[in-house]
């Protein structure tokens, strides 16, 4: 009856029908078949620890770093940006929206914006010197690379001399945009070439497809 449905609401996995899938295709670079292939990926990721049709932070962590439990700065930021509704889980529509930014054909503007939000660790509207330092230190630790503090400061000095046009010690959105347009290779990690061929990476979507394209 009606009440059973409501009782089960939180345990019931969301089903995505043709309407929802084509809506997601309309608001992204993906075709309906590609959205379906992404749904295969989403199902895999969202059931790796808790099979509830939602990606929990530990599941994203497991997918990215093969371990559900190590602290990672980047993971925290990515999860935060994927989780549009800020309810602690990534739903399928949020997954599609975020990956859309990483599509090879997504507007550069969107990639610039996403990278800015990613690196603005404290969400102050600026990428601050301390944040850049924190990220570089995190990377050095992970890769077992050793850099003296002097050298690290020199790298950051040089970076800010180039990026921080108004010299106020922090990079604002406009400065970021100008900087990245001068160094487009900095946006490389904002593009996932696989997304262009997602239906070949996850061909099993054909077993569940709602539409033959």
């Amino acid at each position: 009856g009606c009440c059973d449905f409501h009782k089960n609401k939180h345990h019931k996995k969301l089903r995505y029908g043709f309407r929802e899938l084509s809506q997601l295709a309309r608001e992204s670079q993906f075709t309906v078949n590609e959205v379906e292939a992404l749904y295969e990926l989403f199902k895999k990721l969202s059931s790796s620890i808790i099979d509830d049709g939602l990606i929990h932070k530990e599941e994203l962590q497991l997918a990215l770093f093969k371990s559900p439990h190590s602290e990672n700065l980047f993971l925290d930021r990515v999860f935060y940006l994927f989780d549009e509704k800020k309810n602690g889980v990534i739903e399928f529509d949020e997954f599609v929206h975020a990956l859309n930014v990483f599509h090879p054909y997504a507007p550069t503007e969107d990639k610039i914006d996403f990278a800015f939000r990613l690196y603005d660790l404290r969400q102050t509207g600026f990428i601050e010197r301390e944040e850049v330092k924190q990220m570089v230190i995190a990377i050095l630790l992970e890769s077992d690379m050793n850099l003296s503090d002097d050298l690290l400061e020199a790298i950051i000095d040089k970076t800010f001399a180039d990026a921080d046009a108004d010299n106020d010690g922090k990079i604002n959105k406009e400065e970021w945009k100008a900087f990245v347009l001068r160094h487009p290779n900095l946006l490389k990690n904002m593009t996932l070439p696989y997304l262009k061929d997602i239906t070949t990476v996850f061909p099993s979507f054909v077993f569940n497809t709602e539409v033959e394209e």
Partner: peptide, 25 residues
Amino acid sequence: KPVSMNAFELISRSQSFNLENLFGK
């Protein structure tokens, strides 16, 4: 030559700032 590199180059090149692993490749 790390000093010839800018900090964001280090960050964006790092394996941990990359989503490629999502695809299990």
